[in-house]
């Protein structure tokens, strides 16, 4: 499969009263055609800002993309003029947000919100757009689409609204969908429905997906490859199988160990990652994770570790002590 999106050394900064916040700090990753790639990390790690940077939707003037390239089908999106970028948004790359209610227009009918894109991007007639909108709603499992098209967002439940967002995202048959925490606001049984729907549609339509989430379980079920982010940088990348079976960065290992799991015997005690996430305007020298890291050596405090292949070329980790992490990956702590 060819590369669809290639992000090269992307840097997005925010200017705040506290100083420059390097939200995305020299990040490179890619998505192949039809592939599902995850960006995983906790709040403030830069995963959402990465997606907004690709769409060039970072709020100016505080936020600014200060470096890097975003190559989509070979073109650098960062060098396009605004008019050309508008043709990319929604048409070639679509986005699904966590809270559908805040990204839908409350005073427009559902039908109008779907047909708008079809008329703008695909030059459809209102009649054709309306027929296509009904088709899209039934594709995402919304019953009685003709009646639903005339309704407003508040008349939909949370799960139905997210189905609608998916319909809108897929309306113009984009080749890439950026999904930012698409199921975080939903209940677990509805989350399962929405994720199954996204998975089957992306397969059927061959759409590539960037899944942004903090939920390690969601990633395990749906992603082909995983990028783990911490403090604006990617600290580990690999296939989902490798990342979970053989994590090689202390942060990834810590994340996997800190969550209680239903498939394992209950542990007497959880193993949290100690300390707090860093302040991005005052990052320490060296590795940003070092202050919280159990594997820290002196070098970590002075030299920032680059992403280096470990084992296979596909699996990279930004840790000087990646070898020791492998040796330690067996779960610790008592079991009951």
């Amino acid at each position: 499969m060819g590369t669809l999106l290639e992000v090269v050394d992307l840097q997005t900064h925010f200017l705040t009263r506290g100083g420059v916040v390097r939200a995305v700090d020299g990040v490179s990753w890619d998505v192949a055609e039809g592939e599902t790639v995850a960006l995983v990390g906790e709040s403030g790690c830069g995963k959402s800002v990465s997606a907004l940077s690709i769409m060039r939707l970072v709020a100016a003037p505080a936020g600014r993309i200060v470096g890097g390239r975003v190559l989509f089908k070979g073109r650098d999106l960062l060098s396009l003029d605004e008019e050309a970028m508008r043709r990319v948004r929604g048409r070639e790359i679509a986005m699904i947000f966590q809270e559908p209610m805040t990204s839908l227009n409350p005073v427009l009918t559902i039908g109008r919100q779907i047909t708008e894109g079809l008329e703008t991007h695909l030059d459809m007639t209102p009649t054709a757009a309306r027929a296509r909108a009904a088709e899209l709603l039934s594709m995402v499992g919304i019953p009685d689409p003709a009646r639903r098209l005339a309704q407003y967002p508040h008349q939909f439940s949370g799960g139905m609204r997210q189905r609608m967002m998916i319909a809108m995202a897929l309306a113009c048959e984009p080749s890439l969908v950026l999904a930012d925490e698409p199921t975080t606001a939903l209940d677990v049984t509805i989350q399962a429905q929405i994720l199954e729907l996204m998975k089957s549609l992306s397969r059927r339509l061959g759409v590539a997906m960037l899944m942004i989430t903090h939920n390690l379980g969601v990633v395990a079920r749906y992603a082909d490859r995983v990028n783990v982010m911490y403090a604006g940088k990617i600290i580990e990348r690999g296939t989902a199988r490798e990342i979970y079976a053989n994590p090689r960065h202390p942060y990834t290992l810590g994340l996997l160990r800190s969550v209680p799991r239903l498939d394992e015997p209950r542990r007497a005690r959880l193993d949290p990652i100690e300390g707090q996430p860093p302040d991005l305007s005052r990052l320490p020298g060296g590795c940003s994770f070092a202050p919280r890291c159990a594997f820290r050596v002196e070098r970590c405090l002075v030299e920032t570790p680059p992403l280096r292949p470990i084992g296979s070329a596909e699996h990279v980790s930004a840790c000087w002590e990646a070898e020791r992490v492998r040796a330690a990956r067996e779960p610790v702590g008592g079991r009951t």
Binding site: G159, V188, G217, V219, A220, R221, R261
Partner: peptide, 22 residues
């Protein structure tokens, strides 16, 4: 419905997806 952080297990596991909403 709770996804488990283990891709191999997730691939094997049977999921009961409830129809409809509360």
């Amino acid at each position: 419905a709770v996804p488990i952080p283990d891709p191999e297990l997730e691939a094997r596991r049977e999921h009961i997806v409830l129809r409809g909403e509360v």
